[in-house]
Design a protein around this nucleic acid. Structure first.
Lengths: 359, 359
DNA sequence: CTGAAAGCGCTAACAA
DNA sequence: TTGTTAGCGCTTTCAG
């Protein structure tokens, strides 16, 4: 391979000068610069990243850990899948805007191998981004003791780390308020998310708060799913079984996949949605828009979430003394058909930060 | 930060010995080993990746370039999005099985910045994986002159690079054969993919070959889309407009997104699918299974594709003299409702490598 | 079994 | 403006 020395020799200068040219420093005479650039060109020189990192004492690489929800064999998909894509793009955008690189790995369970991999990563990057919250706190702390760590879509009240997350509580509150105030919904059934998912918890809170604020409304039941279509289906069947002629006015699912599962179960049983029961989800995945009836849901700006987390991390790498900070990104209420609005409806309504809770 | 020297000092040995312990070499006395391990533990030592790479003359990192299809502002999604996820998981799995790391970047257009980024990447990795084919050949060659390169989902007849791809031709042939022999389809409309997508081209070929083999069958028209729902919709409207009462027996779309677009247009116009017109797609994305009617399509093993590409690349890094090789992975015919099979049908039928062409 | 020491390719003082 | 040179943290002969 061609090294800096080769370039220097060919251009008849020292390696320092080549380095200067390489980094666009302007304390190089133009003619010299030209000669060096020519040499670089001729030789097709590309700097060695490892050597640069070592010398600069900085890798200009950030690590992304994607936590995978444990996947049961019968699951076709899982929430991480639709989740990841946009976030990844956001992160990559932020990273490459700074001309840094992105090292990515998946974390799927607390095995020795995974542990080793994750720890080793901290020796290869300047900072780490962790997607989703169900990541062992102990491990998070070990990582954080070595490099800055930012959590994406984590719990908003993490005291020791930077967190960037969507305003799940306000989003859920907004969609539930819509059901109650614009569709006269009184009885609701809640299909909650996994208990270890911080965003699911926030959504549950949002629902509860709105119910409290609206006397006369109440939960007729609740169950928990795993953020996938299968468990949504099961929830739907359970709703039917428990109903005995008394279906709730609306089913609120903690994400779109489960909402689609519920929709399926209801439709299959001959229940008309939204005429007999309204159904709403969360996330605004592709399929929410394709499904019939089109799903009313809440959009969270995953891409921006990735970008923000990334800039925050780079900020903290530059100045590790920064205090931990939580950023809540606003969501959007996406009103379509499944809540009871007329066919063909598509309204996107920004959800203001936390006021939405009040109504 | 804690370095190897710190560990060595604390354990009262030389750095060489620590290094040996670190890499499980067994020419170290047990008591010494224990002492060193204790020191590593105490200090929470984690080796510096850059220094290791530099010293070993090997980075143990592979680079993944994800080519994004240029996205028009009005596009909600694009094919790359659903495409990427599984492939990425496959690649990551392959990479971390070897205890290597994955550096990822997106390539979205031939700008100077992108060019620089991509070239710089070749200085940070031992080999590069390129997803999808619409990547400038010149650039590919420059990369290849520096590190081994493997192409995923590229054209199967690339002479100079390793290619791992699904057997698009056989897959398309299988689904078209199914339409013709099991549903008596005679007239077909083709919604082709972008002209620069090698897999789209292969699928087109598969369609044509089957038509040739079945006298009496013919194309009533064809149009080209961009692998997204929007262009599928446009194609569907065009089919309706061109039809004048004479709809084709079936519409063959080059991917699922476009098939869904067509489905939408037809349904909207009151055409019943599959009773009046059958529609089939390709890829077997999530939504294909959720949509009503459920879409008959062809599954390609994206995850395995990622894994295979990865192992091939690592093979070639170990031995750069290996001859270029193309691997074609078998697809599966996924028969559901939209081809005309009874509601509730779900049959997955492996497509044998190339024989499928014959029938 | 263990240690000394020569790099790996590049950056950044410091000198000239 | 340019060159000299001392590391960056680790691996790996080569000696002992």
């Amino acid at each position: 391979v061609v090294t800096l020395y080769d370039v220097a020799r060919r251009a008849g200068v020292s390696t320092a000068t080549v380095s200067r040219v390489l980094h666009g420093q302007n304390l190089v005479r133009d003619t010299t610069r030209a000669r060096v650039q020519q040499a670089i060109e001729d030789l097709g020189y590309i700097p060695d990243g490892a050597a640069q990192s070592l010398s600069r004492r900085r890798k200009e690489v950030i690590g992304l850990i994607c936590c995978e929800r444990p996947m049961h064999p019968e699951d076709v998909e899982n929430r991480s899948m639709t989740y990841l894509d946009e976030m990844l793009r956001g992160v990559e955008h932020g990273v490459s805007a700074m001309d840094w690189s992105l090292l990515i790995t998946f974390y799927n369970g607390h095995t020795t191998t995974n542990l080793r991999r994750i720890l080793a990563m901290s020796g290869k990057v300047d900072g780490i981004l962790i997607s989703e919250g169900s990541f062992p706190v102990r491990l998070m702390e070990r990582l954080a003791s070595r490099v800055p760590v930012t959590i994406m879509a984590g719990s908003p009240d993490e005291p020791d780390f930077d967190v960037v997350t969507a305003d799940n509580l306000a989003g859920e509150a907004a969609v539930v308020s819509h059901l109650i105030t614009e569709h006269g919904v009184r009885t609701l059934y809640h299909v909650a998310g996994p208990s270890d998912a911080p965003d699911a918890a926030q959504r549950g809170l949002g629902l509860v708060r709105v119910l409290q604020d609206h006397p006369g409304t109440r939960l007729t039941g609740a169950t928990r799913g795993s953020f996938n279509v299968e468990t949504g289906l099961v929830a739907g069947e359970r709703i039917l079984a428990e109903a005995r002629g008394e279906l709730p006015d609306a089913v609120v699912a903690a994400n779109d996949q489960m909402a689609i599962g519920v929709l399926r179960a209801l439709t299959r049983a001959g229940v008309r949605v939204p005429d007999e029961v309204a159904v709403v989800g969360f996330d605004d995945i592709q399929a929410a828009n394709l499904y019939e009836p089109q799903l009313t849901t809440v959009y969270q700006p995953m891409r921006m979430l990735g970008e923000r987390a990334c800039s925050r991390l780079i900020e903290r790498i530059a100045d590790p003394s920064l205090p931990a900070q939580t950023q809540m990104l606003p969501t959007e209420l996406v009103i379509r058909r499944s809540c009871g609005c007329p066919p063909g409806t598509t309204i996107r309504r920004p959800v203001p930060p936390a006021l939405a809770i009040a109504e």
